[in-house]
Design a protein around this nucleic acid. Sequence first.
DNA 1: ATGGTTGCTTAGCAA
Length: 255
Amino acid sequence: MRIITWNVNSIRTRLPRLLGVLERHEPDVMCLQELKVVDDAFPTLDISQAGYHATVFGQKTYNGVAILSKEQPKDVERSMDDGAEDSQARFVAADFGGVRVISVYVPNGGSVGSDKWEYKLEWLSRLKRHLDAHADPSASLAICGDFNIASDDRDVKNPDKWKDSVLCHPDGRAAFQSLLDWGLVDAFRAHHPDGGIYSWWDYRMLGFPKNDGLRIDGVLATRCLADRIEDAFVDRDERKGKQPSDHAPVVVDFS
DNA sequence: ATGGTTGCTTAGCAA
């Protein structure tokens, strides 16, 4: 089973690239973030012609997540079901052949100490509580997405530059660790323990040409799934050329 | 300490 997660930063602008990724990598499941369109504007027909179902939780202008899949989704959820008031589309989940897959777009956090920062930490603790209430660490579960957290400095090209940012702050890293402690393995980390492979580069300041990157996208898998990791890589070529997303797709294969 | 770029929406926000 091949799972890809990709923050496309606008499905409208990225559709040609997305169709290319589907054709080239043939994922069984593809988690998307930052669609920036409402459900009705999602290119369902193009995705369908490419051979994929689309489970969409869209939003105008900001956010929006989806799961594309060869198999029909079952038991779709579009919220963490915790009764919280949340106007932001950042969570969608479905079952595919006995594997529960969640596509998440964790809040960026703006700047440390801001309202957006508090929202990020609260959102992460809600996700942890969601797992406590609705998931089982001994079942097959993969949380895939843009976590907006580089969990340690192995995932940061220039740690000194980024150490005080919302992507590397200790409070965010602690929240990420509490997800792992619940019973998840960072699949990409497990396959590349040395780090030095990144999934996001700022559009500004020549981020990509200088490889000033961070790995903030990934797949968190429960143990039974993580035991079956066969391969994990970043499709760095997708960050090249005209109109790239600022994120590259992260691919993980399970036997 | 600021600013740099991209996308959505149309001057300003979010990332």
